[in-house]
Design a protein around this nucleic acid. Structure first.
Length: 834
RNA sequence: GCUCUCGUGGCGGAAUGGUAGACGCGCAGGAUUUAGGAUCCUGUGGGAGUAAUCCUGUAGAGGUUCGAAUCCUCUCGAGAGCACCA
């Protein structure tokens, strides 16, 4: 026989990638699909370095599931896009000194090339790029919806400030006191910022965790981050005043032991309770704690200062001193605590340091009710979760679509003084006076092209230096007004992208409009003025009808929520929490009909290289391109899926890659050998066992085990000969893992349509049954012999006992011993207890 | 400090109460080759033995069970998350 040609992955992979795109086999009919399955992978941000092996690993895991579901008869929609707006993209642009605007198209193009070269089945007709104007117009629209619903508010607060990124950060984006992006130590700064009222949804975010199919550890992270504590809010009357300080406690049962009260240095009460004599040292203490970041370390001594003021413990009626200390957090509870040194370690430390009274008491559960009955306080819950700070003092993001009118502010007017919609109950704590959302008809607020896009570090964004951007007119009174010059958090862009995908391309009006804007910008004539001056130009033909939604309601009903979300665990309390919140809000304001965006989520592990997590900052990234070139995408996919469980931490090694290439070559050899005339019995049994195992394993994301089972099957076929049917089913089972080679052999087998639209092989349990089985014989749980019997005999205890006792080995072991008991597991084992 | 997860050959890992180490990498021996590479075959947890076979073994100690890598308790080690949350 002539020497067979080697598998040429380069030409075959390129050929099919082109064919798939031409046939559109990964593009479902979004309007009519009968069995929709929305298979989503967390979209990447297109860094200039391109995809690394960790991305290839994760995206392949998602792709395999999508291909499997397609072969199960589902109309799979598997989209891809780029999270290209935001600080991560901008930081790179700053590093290389190029405007992010010009970098994003280049980097996303490179990503597209890489993702295609891996053979993923994405619907390339519906991509999303968060920095595109026809996307961020809707991100701005979302802000307006939240504003109108009373869920967006502006407030002066002590916020996390990254001195390197020169912007504020949300609590979730501060990791161990450091910036999530650049690991610089975060400072505290007083700034007026926009917040989303995610705390309103704390209870729902927590309760709904019960309803969703997510890995336990991700749910737990969210639960801990929400951090619900149930307790009581107890009122302590100030001595010589009718005012009360409220204190949150989870231990009202220890109220009798409260011998002092402690305020956070930032508490508004400090000024009110401090006596003249103590004012000096108190203000000095407070001043020293203005600058301190997050809060002070636990190990530090508990510093503090007496205010001179006293309050009354409602239970004992005694006057107790009021202190100030930085171990009390301003942002949690009411920023004040009751000090119970006998039952709280921290209070004890504080009391001992400052020689305060420690009173031994017996906790009394009855106090929970007594507090309420005597009106000392009420039941209360407190959360660790804080409102989501969305302002960023940067350039590369959607300008927050809000307008401040000094004249309205002077007159005490705001959007809510005119609005008919409901106003949030706690509106008192916002500083919304003078503020209006940009009218929906006036969106987008175009991010202008500017040269000085570098962050300035003054607490304002670069747009604040551009009057041509921020000068506008008040939507209410028409007088001169100013736009917000901060942009929004990148996590706002990604909090809704999954809603957009299925509807991409369905609103022609929107597309026309964005083309128009791009034209304007490119010509340099109009720039951002298109949106800025629309107010003065009501005839503008590029208005958006108010009835428009960023998603088509019919299509959304068909495809959402997402059937399977595949992504990394690092977003447990970031993207995954924000997206849940956003979806709940959209549900409550009637824009979508579900509360949970991702009822099923799978968290893949992080790839390890040189005993460290693969990341650009560690400098240990592996670019998949040379591996695809040398071994082929199929071999790389198989390798990545085989190295370990999908939720583990796979270690990238070159040697394993070569082994997988060998397997691919062996497969090709098998597929290109003339099939055996007759099917072999053993091979048929193995085939059905393999179908069963691989099907179950893929469903459970146990791809490494599925591939091992396929390898075993291949070994059996090599030994016993492979029939045409055996090869056909082998190709089908391999198709999700090695889409190119299986497509090639599928066509070689005479098929004219794609293997990826073929049906998954059927498992027949009768044909999978072994004719002979091995029954293990144990003595006191130890393996002493094996009996090979036919499967019928294996079910019969009497027969197995009889056979065991005639086995010379067992005879030896049972000699002179009395069998007390025999445990029989049909078809598996018998255990004699002696 | 608290919470959670995990400890299995030289390596990645199978086995989730029933034959520990599937499958692969690596390694060793052999075949083929002028040689190397590639490919194929055989072996491969440790120990004893020519061998059949036996002993031992899933971080360590104890427990439950006819039977434990798997369940329970403690100890040690690694990782992750939260971190003065009242």
């Amino acid at each position: 026989m002539a020497k067979k040609s080697k598998y040429d992955h380069r030409s075959i992979e390129a050929k099919w990638q082109e064919a798939w795109a031409g046939e559109g086999i990964y593009t479902p009919d979004v309007n009519k699909a009968k069995n929709p399955f929305y298979n989503l992978w967390m979209f990447p941000y297109p860094s200039a370095e391109g995809l690394h092996a960790g991305h290839a690993y994760a995206s392949t895991g998602s792709d395999i599931y999508g291909r499997f579901m397609r072969m199960q008869g589902k109309d799979v929609f598997q989209p891809i896009g780029y999270d290209s707006f935001g600080i991560h993209s901008e930081n790179y642009a700053l590093k290389v000194g190029e405007n992010p605007e010009t970098i994003v198209p280049k980097t996303s193009k490179n990503y597209e090339r890489q993702l295609k070269s891996l053979g993923h089945g994405y619907d390339w007709t519906r991509t999303v790029t968060t920095s595109d104007i026809d996307y961020y117009v809707w991100t701005q629209w979302l802000f307006v919806q939240l504003f109108k619903a009373g869920l967006a508010y502006r407030k002066e607060a002590k916020v996390n400030w990254c001195p390197s990124c020169k912007t504020v950060l949300a609590d979730e984006q501060v990791i161990n006191g450091k910036c999530e992006r650049c690991s610089t130590e975060v400072q505290k700064k007083d700034l007026a910022q926009w917040f989303f009222r995610i705390t309103d949804y704390a209870d729902k975010l927590l309760a709904n965790l019960e309803k969703i199919d997510w890995p336990g550890h991700i749910k737990l992270s969210q639960k801990n981050w929400i951090g619900k504590s149930e307790g009581e809010s107890i009122r302590f009357r100030l001595v010589g005043s009718s005012e009360y300080i409220e204190v949150f406690t989870t231990r009202p049962d220890t109220l009798y032991g409260a011998t002092f009260l402690v305020l956070s240095p930032h508490s508004a009460w400090v000024g009110k309770v401090t006596t003249k004599e103590n004012m000096g040292k108190v203000s000095e203490y407070v001043k020293n704690h203005q600058q301190s970041a997050i809060n002070n370390q636990q190990s530090k001594l508990k510093t503090g200062v007496f205010t001179g003021g006293y309050t009354i413990n409602p239970a004992t009626g005694e006057e107790i001193p009021i202190w100030v200390s930085d171990y009390v957090l301003e942002g949690y509870g009411s920023g004040a605590i009751m000090g119970v040194p006998s039952h709280d370690e921290r209070d004890k430390e504080f009391a001992l340091t400052h020689k305060l009274e420690v009173r031994q008491i017996v906790p009394d559960e009855g106090l929970w009710d007594i507090v309420e009955q005597k009106d000392w306080g009420r039941r209360a819950v407190s959360f660790h979760l804080r409102d989501w700070l969305i302002s960023r003092q940067r350039y590369w993001g959607p300008p927050i679509p809000a307008i401040y009118c000094p004249r309205c502010a002077k007159e005490g007017k705001s959007y809510f003084s005119e609005a008919k919609g409901q106003i949030h109950a706690d509106q008192n704590d916002w500083e919304h006076t003078g503020w209006y959302p940009v009218d929906e008809n006036e969106l987008p607020v175009k991010l202008p092209h500017i040269e000085d896009y570098r962050p300035v570090g003054t607490g304002k964004g670069p747009l604040a230096n551009h009057p041509e951007f921020y000068e506008t007119v008040c939507p209410a009174c028409g007088s001169k007004a100013m736009r917000e010059t901060d942009v929004s958090d990148t996590f706002l862009d990604s909090s809704w992208y999954f809603l957009r995908y299925p509807s991409v391309g369905t609103e022609s009006k929107l597309e026309d409009r964005s083309l128009m804007l791009d034209e304007d910008v490119r010509s340099g004539k109009v720039g951002n003025r298109v949106s800025n001056f629309k107010l003065q130009n009501p005839d503008s033909h590029i208005q958006l009808p108010t009835s428009s939604l960023p998603w088509d309601p019919e299509i959304t009903r068909r495809w959402l929520p997402v059937d399977l979300y595949f992504g990394g665990a690092e977003h447990a309390v970031l993207h995954l929490m924000y997206s849940r919140f956003m979806t709940m809000v959209l549900h409550d304001i009637g824009k979508v009909d579900f509360e949970e965006p991702f009822p099923r989520f799978f968290a893949h592990g992080l790839m390890i290289k040189d005993s460290a997590k693969m990341s650009k900052s560690k400098g240990n990234v592996v670019n998949p391109d040379p591996y695809i070139e040398k071994f082929g995408a199929d071999a790389l996919r198989l390798y990545l899926m085989f190295i370990g469980p999908m939720d583990g931490s796979p270690v990238f090694r070159d040697t394993g890659m070569e082994g997988m290439k060998r397997f691919v070559n062996r497969l090709w050899e098998l597929f290109t050998t003339k099939p055996a005339e007759k099917s072999n019995k053993e091979a048929t049994i193995k085939m059905h066992q393999t179908i069963n195992k691989v099907t179950e394993d893929i469903q459970n994301f146990r791809y490494n085990v599925a591939i091992a089972a396929i390898m075993e099957y291949v070994n059996v076929l090599k030994e016993n000969g492979a029939s045409a049917e055996a090869l056909k089913n082998l190709a089908l089972m391999l198709a999700p893992f090695a889409p190119h080679m299986t497509e090639e052999v599928w066509h070689m087998m005479g098929n004219t349509s794609s293997i990826h639209k073929a049906s998954w092989p059927q498992f027949d349990p009768d044909l999978a049954r072994e004719k002979r089985v091995v029954v293990v014989v144990q003595i006191n749980g130890k393996l002493r012999a094996e009996l090979e019997v036919n499967s019928l005999q294996g079910q019969n205890q009497e027969e197995i006992e009889k056979l065991s006792k005639s086995d010379p080995n067992i005879v030896k072991w049972l000699e002179g011993k009395k069998v007390k008991k025999a445990v029989f597991v049909p078809g598996r084992l018998i255990n004699f207890v002696i």
